[in-house]
Design a binder for these strands. Structure first.
Length: 139
DNA sequence: GCCAACGTTGGC
DNA sequence: GCCAACGTTGGC
């Protein structure tokens, strides 16, 4: 099963807001990048992902789950853009910062570390396990 | 607030 | 199809 990472500026949409949506989840709209969109198109309901706060915090703060497959983005009429819906699963026991990821053995290839600009990223199973451990939660 | 990196656009 | 210009992202 593939794993993912969703990036959001907490000023725009924070983990707390995501949690407040509960089981209903929230449409991950606003992505206007083909790579990120293609990653979302590859997702299946039930896939797990990290929730990362960019700019403020710069840390993985929680775990989310895909609860609807990719469908047209309701915030645009442009047919090119799709998005999934995600719901919060649980917070990390402690946030895992970008700084920590950069020096953590095994995360050298992580997209978050190497391509900071991609807003929806794939995460390998090995990376998933490492970050979960750093965050104090079961993979 | 700055700026580097990257992606997209559009003229040719 | 190339590439310069531009806009955006996100770390610092």
């Amino acid at each position: 099963m593939p794993f993912w990472l969703f990036k959001s500026e907490p000023d725009t949409w924070s983990w707390d807001q995501q949690v407040a949506k509960g089981e209903a989840g929230e449409e991950w709209h606003g992505v206007r990048n083909y790579q990120a969109r293609n990653n979302m198109r590859a997702m299946k309901v039930g896939d797990l992902g990290f929730y990362y706060h960019s700019n403020i915090g710069k840390a993985v703060v929680g775990i989310v789950q895909v609860c609807r497959e990719s469908a047209p983005d309701s915030t645009t009429d442009d047919p090119r853009w799709d998005c999934v819906m995600i719901k919060a699963v649980r917070p990390l026991a402690r946030p895992v910062t970008l700084e920590e990821c950069k020096v953590q053995p095994g995360l050298e290839q992580m997209v978050l570390v190497n391509n900071s600009r991609l807003s929806v990223q794939p995460v390998t199973e090995a990376e998933w396990a490492i970050v979960c451990q750093m965050g104090g939660v079961e993979p």
